[in-house]
Design a protein around this nucleic acid. Structure first.
Lengths: 239, 239
DNA sequence: GAGTGGTCTAGACCACAAT
DNA sequence: TTGTGGTCTAGACCACTCC
């Protein structure tokens, strides 16, 4: 019965979200400000508290708001620019470009962890680890050297895989579903063995991605991926 | 009354989420499979449909599930590993490390767009652009050369800023709220002028971030940020 | 038409923060 | 103690898909 001049069929919780985003955009509500309580908004919009709750909860998960139980709802810090690098499985990435992927297995061994590795895995030095070195080719041009150490406790069958068919990445995603990862991206000159595998000059810059993946049962894998700087880059976009 | 052997104080909607994630992880439910309906789950867990709805809705926004009204709820495609690089304002980033930020303005000018730049901005060649080159120091060590071109139509007051106080990034975030960006990260050897500003060897690898930011009114800015490879990296984590 | 998800209500009890 | 957010219920009506 009550006609409220609402434009279309936008759900109420969405209208409340839009209203809040608008107030922030207009500068009426600034970073750190308290915004009206659930009850106040439910009265203002003449809706139930659950509906307001959903709007506020979603804006919180979208990092627009912070909520503190017992205290109130606050405008969050302005978001930093974030760059989302989607690190796909390299084989799939290459195929997606319509190119041919091929890999060479240069090393597959059991080896004892040195102190540095043990520390990264959270294990004691001397603990057994799996180690593989694989070179990935795109149309027969070397594009990545993947130097990977794997925790046998997490992926006991790692050594049994045929890495010409399945990439370590693909296998680990199935064997030890990842819960998260730490990574870094840097530019440096690669050691001689790496430059040889990539067939690049010894002084040529490499783009290096180091990644440590966490699964349920601990650190699953520590990998260093070397790419020739002049023929590889990470790219993408966000909005 | 009903004791259900629940471990702790985990909310019901969270337990349902965990249950679903577990079924997927165990392989009981595979990509594309239909999972039980809201009603079925609400009976299975002896909770109200709203609680199940919240669990499913959140998993959908987390890209674990797809929902189709009138049809059902499906297991989504397995996610790619995604690396979230948070590119903060460099001044803030340095201060967050407890270090001192300082910048040197090496160039601030109006200049006509060459063909390449014009194309990036979506303007015609010869269009006027603002251009700045700033070197950022962390504890008096050069850490970034920021070579930036700005669209005057979007940020007309760019030339009036005092870039020893406000970074271009800070100013642009306010003047032209960004809607998105395209970026790439690569490793290469910098031109002589850059290596001099960074005070590094001429053959030393640089980590280069190129970023094009979009605002409401078009391309706001095109920037190339050069970092010495041996003393700078992008890093972070995700889960 | 039966079944599914999408949304909403008007209460309720709780944990926590501020006072 | 009061006010806040966190969660949950047992219904309801709707839009959409599928048969």
């Amino acid at each position: 019965m009550a006609v409220q001049g609402q434009q279309t069929n936008v759900p109420i919780f969405q209208r409340i979200k839009d209203y809040i985003l608008n107030e922030i955009q207009l500068g009426h509500w600034r970073e750190g400000d308290v915004i009206p309580t659930e009850q106040a908004l439910s009265i203002q919009f003449a809706v139930s508290r659950m509906t307001v709750n959903r709007a506020l909860r979603e804006l919180t998960s979208e990092q627009v708001l912070n909520r503190i139980q017992g205290s109130g709802t606050y405008v969050a810090q302005q978001k930093y620019q974030a760059t989302l690098v989607t690190v796909k499985n390299i084989a799939e990435e290459i195929r997606a470009r319509g190119h041919v992927h091929r890999s060479e297995l240069h090393c597959l061994e059991r080896s004892k962890a040195n102190e540095l590795l043990a520390k990264q895995f959270g294990l004691r030095a001397g603990h057994m680890l799996f180690h593989s070195i694989i070179v990935h080719f795109e149309n027969d041009i070397a594009i990545q050297v993947e130097d990977r150490w794997v925790n046998p406790d997490v992926a006991p069958d790692y050594m049994l895989q045929d890495f010409s068919v399945v990439t370590p990445n693909e296998y680990l995603m199935v064997a030890a579903p990842l819960q998260g990862a730490d990574y870094s991206i840097e530019a440096c000159v690669a050691p001689k063995e790496i430059t040889e595998m990539l067939a690049i000059g010894q002084k040529e810059p490499c783009l290096v991605l180091k990644r440590k993946t966490r699964s349920m049962d601990g650190i699953a894998s520590v990998a260093t991926m070397w790419h020739p700087g002049h023929r590889y880059q990470f790219s993408g976009s966000f909005s």
